[in-house]
Every structure is written in C-alpha cells, then in structure tokens.
Design a protein around this nucleic acid. Structure first.
Length: 519
RNA sequence: GGCAGCGUAGCUCAGUGGUAGAGCAGGGGAAUCAUAAUCCCUUGGUCGGGGGUUCAAAUCCCUCCGCUGCUACCA
C-alpha cells in the first residue's frame, strides 16, 4: 500500500450513557460504506469510531450503579463495541477516551494551547441550576415576586462563580470566517454551513474549558483541581487515534492528518465546525477537511423518544429485516443530510421491491438460466450487438457516477444510479428473451447471458460497500476470487472468462413476508 | 422576536423563465427465464392562497397562511 492515497474518516465518539439506537447505527453505517468504498477504490483508509466516557452524567450513573466510573464505562462502552459486530462495521480502530493514549494526548494538546497563550485562568460566573446541572443565560430566566430566578425547566437557579480556564475563542472569529470562506466544502450540507457562519458572525465569546464541580475527566496539566471540558477532551480523540502527540516525519499523524471527513449528527455540528477548527488552528495544526451533519430518523412519523417508548434498537431491525437489508434501507430511503422517517411499510417496500424483486430476482433469473442452459459455466459470448454494448456501457460507467456521488456523501443518489442499471438489465432480459433464443439461436442466447453476467458482476462489486454479505454471495456465484472484487477489476479488464465453472445459484435477497396472525 | 429554509400527483421527492416529472401506490395489458418476480401502457396535480413583473412564472418580486432549522458552554 505504500504510496497509495490515504483517507481518514471518523464517527463521533458516542456517549456511553446512551443506549445505542438507530441514529448511532446510521452515523457509523454511513462511514462504514465510505470506508469500504475507498478501500475498494485503492485508498489506504483509516476508519475510526469509539466512545466518549467522561463527564458528570457518567460519574453520576456510575455512582447510582454503585461502581467506580472506570468499571462502569468498561461495562457500558461494550454496548457500542457490540454494535460494530451487529452492523458489520469495518472500523480500523475503536478509541475510548479513558485510554492512556488519549489522556496523554489530551494533556499534550492542552499544554500546546497553553504554550501559545490560547488558554488563560479566569472565573466562570452564571445562573446555575443544580437540578438541571446547567447554566442559563440571564434572558432565559424568569424572576419570581420574591426575587428567585427560575429556569425554563422550572428549576430554581443560583448565582455561581467558579475558577475556570478559558480558551480564547473570541480571538478566532475572523479567522474562522476566513477559513469557511476559503473552504466552501468544509461544512455540509450547504444549509448547515450557513447556520454555522451566521452563528460565528453573531459573535464568539471565550469558551470555558475546565470544570471543578466534578472529578470524572482528564486532569488539567499542572492544576489537577480542574478537569478538562468534555468537548475539548472528546474532540482530541480524532488526533489521538493517529498517534498524537507523535507528529514527526514518518509518524502516522504526519501521514493521516488532517482527517478527510468527520461524520456527525446535526446536534453536534457546532462543536466540530467552530470549536474544533479553532482549537486546531490555535494549536497551529490543520483543521479537518470536511464535516458532514446528517439528519435524524423519526419512527412511523413520530419523534424517537424514551418517553414514547418507540426507540428502535438496531438489533431489532437486523433481526426483523436482515442486516444488509437494514443497511440498504437506511442509505437509500432518505437523501443523506435530510431527516427521514422509518416505517415498516417503507422498509418492506424497499426490501421486496428493490432488493428481492429488482436486484435479487435479476441475479436469480440470469444465473439460473446459465445453470440450466450453459452447462453451469460462464457462457461463451459471440459478437456484441448495439443493445449489448449499451448495457455493458452503462455498467462500465457506474463507477465514475458512484464515486462522484459518494464524494459528496450522496448515498441515495449513488444507489439510484446503481438501480438504474438494475432496471436496464431487467428490461434487457425481457427484450432479448433468452428463453426464446434457446430454441432459435443458442449462440445468441449465450452472448445475452454473458452480457447479463458481466453486468451483474459490476453491480455486485459496486454494492459491496453497502451490502457486504449479500454482494459477496453474488460474487461467489460468479466464481470470483477475493482478489477479483476491487474496483480495479471493473470494466473489460476484469471480464468474466467463458468456461469458468459456476456453483448452483442461490437466492440472496428473500422477500419479506408478513407474519400472518394465527387464525 | 431575529435570521434562514421549505410548502409540486395518494406517499416520498426532482424540476429555478419557454407546452408539469420520477419512484412507489392505483388501473389495464404482455410474457412465462426467475424469489407470483419482470416488461409495456395508463389514471392522477388551478406546482400553499392572493397580487405583481414578463410575449411567457412551479421557476423572479411583494404579501398572507402553514411547517422546519439556527439563535453557544448536558453530551
């Protein structure tokens, strides 16, 4: 792999206090598909995910559970490590913020900011609600007749002043705006970019980056009374994983930083597009190349919430509809970046329509004709007609299209393009009617089936990132070896060889059949 | 409140000045290789309301209605 281009992409690190749901699965899935795509396209990929394990809530949950925070996080971070195998993610690393490498990295990063005069000791004062564990702005509060300050949540607030370190965020406002201006692709989708710019233009205040009110965090170097603000701690994970503070020539950091893509949910956009690039620029390090904020899922038209009890565990989806079916649905159903709705009906439409009927049945009808009429081997093609060349041409052109769409994280458009060729292939089968040629012109039938097998080879190679298992089964049925499945094999260079024996075809995408209620 | 965006066929959406589109759903037909899968044809919309600019507006301008996002320190 020496000399090949690198591609470094990350998921957010997930807060261990949360139970993994469809939203977590979605973020990491999007990254997984990109990572697999880039690897097949010849890139040297590093795909990182992990867990965020510090903070007051974790400390409290551990206390409630009657265990030390570390023991607690060891236990709950497993929920997210289990998600990796459930969803078949191909991450190269799984980082936990309680790991030694990260604590050292975060402290080194802190010192680097401090050495450059970007952090100073001041005091943080504000209206604090003990119940909500949050500070509120003056304008958010209502005052009772007796002079008490009440938060929007109804909790009583008190004036609290505590020593805190601050990051000179206010000094970075203009340089951030300049950075956004010069890097129009840094924030995606475009609507989010405008929001961030509007936010920064409205004025930035220095950011409190340490806490003294609880203990579960990374100690501030030189002043262990303070622990680092969880977001500073958390964001640094992206450089920890590439070996920071080791930054010299030949280091992994030098090779992989800046990250090519941070994938995030829209709720944490600001941390990644304002604070993080400011921290990095202040540390004289390069900001990431791109941050993409995707949308949220609703369930059957309703917001997902614990109180409604409609939170969907990824495991339920996988068990009900199948793993690759779930992966396909999540990326095909909704334009990536938009909010989307998960419904049983929509899922069944995708599973049966796109997968079982369009794609699965195409593969099955073609391979089964080859099995029965071509001696269970890749047929020998004759000269190609215009129709043959049109279909093969569409298949050959797919890589460029898909590559372009994925460069913009437009998963739905990439899949649309692939399915357009699935449709072309099904129409071609009907037009050429190989079952009729069988009697009138067997040589022509062989050519038609060869063209179809070649088309399927392209489709299956290109669906590998989204549906690794199913695609692999199709490629098995074309008798392609492990080294014949990369994008380098697309086009005529990797074409199927006539006479290659093929195994008996097997269905890959079963139809979803509603369970009938017992009568 | 301020700023931004959206409102197009039953559903999800594309279309940003020149005779209204796709997929799915609905209706009809063909074929029978295949997971009763596929293919063809087709019903369906005063493009949120009103006003304006223009030879021409879903597309530009104004206004009204409805919906959504952002408006910093829980993560």
């Amino acid at each position: 792999m020496a000399g090949s281009q690198t591609y470094y992409l990350t998921t957010p690190i997930y807060y261990v206090n949360d139970v993994p749901h469809i939203g977590h699965a979605y973020t990491t899935l999007a990254c997984d598909v990109l990572a697999r795509f880039m690897r097949l396209d010849g890139y040297d990929v590093k795909f990182l995910t992990g867990t965020d394990e510090h903070g007051q809530k974790v400390e409290k949950s551990a206390m409630n559970a009657g265990v030390e925070p570390q023991a607690f996080t060891d236990r709950v971070s497993k929920n997210f490590r289990d998600l990796v195998s459930l969803m078949n993610y191909s991450n190269d690393d799984f980082i936990r913020t309680t790991e030694k490498r990260h604590v050292e990295s975060a402290q080194a990063f802190w010192r680097r900011l401090e050495e450059r005069g970007e952090i100073y000791l001041g005091s943080y004062a504000g209206w604090y609600s003990v119940r909500d564990e949050a500070f509120y702005g003056e304008d958010e509060l209502t005052t009772t007749p007796s002079g008490k300050k009440i938060a929007p949540t109804g909790a009583e607030c008190e004036w609290v002043e505590e020593p805190s370190y601050f990051f000179r965020l206010s000094a970075w406002q203009d340089r951030l705006l300049e950075f956004y201006e010069k890097n129009p692709d840094f924030i995606a989708p475009a609507g989010k970019r405008n929001e961030v710019i509007a936010f920064v233009k409205s004025g930035l205040k220095d950011l409190s980056v340490s806490r003294t009110t609880f203990k579960w965090g990374i100690p501030v170097p030189g002043n262990p009374e303070h622990i680092m603000y969880v977001w500073l701690d958390a964001l640094v994970n992206y450089i920890t994983a590439v070996g920071y503070p080791e930054m010299g020539e030949g280091s992994e950091f030098a090779k992989r930083w800046p990250a090519d893509l941070h994938m995030v949910g829209k709720d944490i956009l600001r941390f990644h597009t304002v604070y993080w690039p400011a921290f990095l620029m202040a540390a004289e390090m390069a900001p990431p190349r791109r941050v993409f904020a995707h949308g949220w899922w609703t369930i059957e038209g309703q917001k997902m919430s614990k109180s409604l009890g409609n939170v969907i565990a990824p495991e339920t989806l996988v068990n009900t509809y199948g793993l690759d079916q779930t992966r396909y649905f999540l990326l095909r159903e909704v334009p990536f970046g938009n909010d989307g709705d998960f419904s049983h009906r929509a899922m069944v439409n995708r599973v049966n329509g796109n997968l079982a009927n369009d794609y699965g049945n195409l593969v099955q009808r073609v391979l089964s004709m080859i099995g029965k009429n071509c001696g269970a081997a890749v047929p020998q093609p004759g000269p190609f007609t215009e129709a043959d060349q049109a279909l093969l041409g569409a298949a050959h052109a797919l890589l460029d299209t898909v590559r372009g769409e994925l460069k913009a994280q437009a998963f739905h458009k990439a899949l649309d393009a692939i399915w357009a060729v699935v449709g072309d292939a099904n129409r071609y089968v009907d037009e050429q009617a190989p079952w009729a040629l069988k009697k009138t012109d067997p040589a022509r039938m062989a050519t038609v089936l060869y063209v179809l097998a070649e088309t399927i080879r392209h489709l299956a190679i290109l669906t590998q990132p989204v549906m690794p298992d199913a695609s692999s089964k199709i490629l098995d049925q074309l008798a392609l070896g492990p080294d014949e499945r990369g994008f380098g094999r697309l086009g005529e260079g990797g074409a199927l060889k006539a006479g290659t024996p093929l195994p008996a075809p097997q269905g890959v995408f079963p139809r979803y059949v509603e369970e009938t209620k017992g009568e």
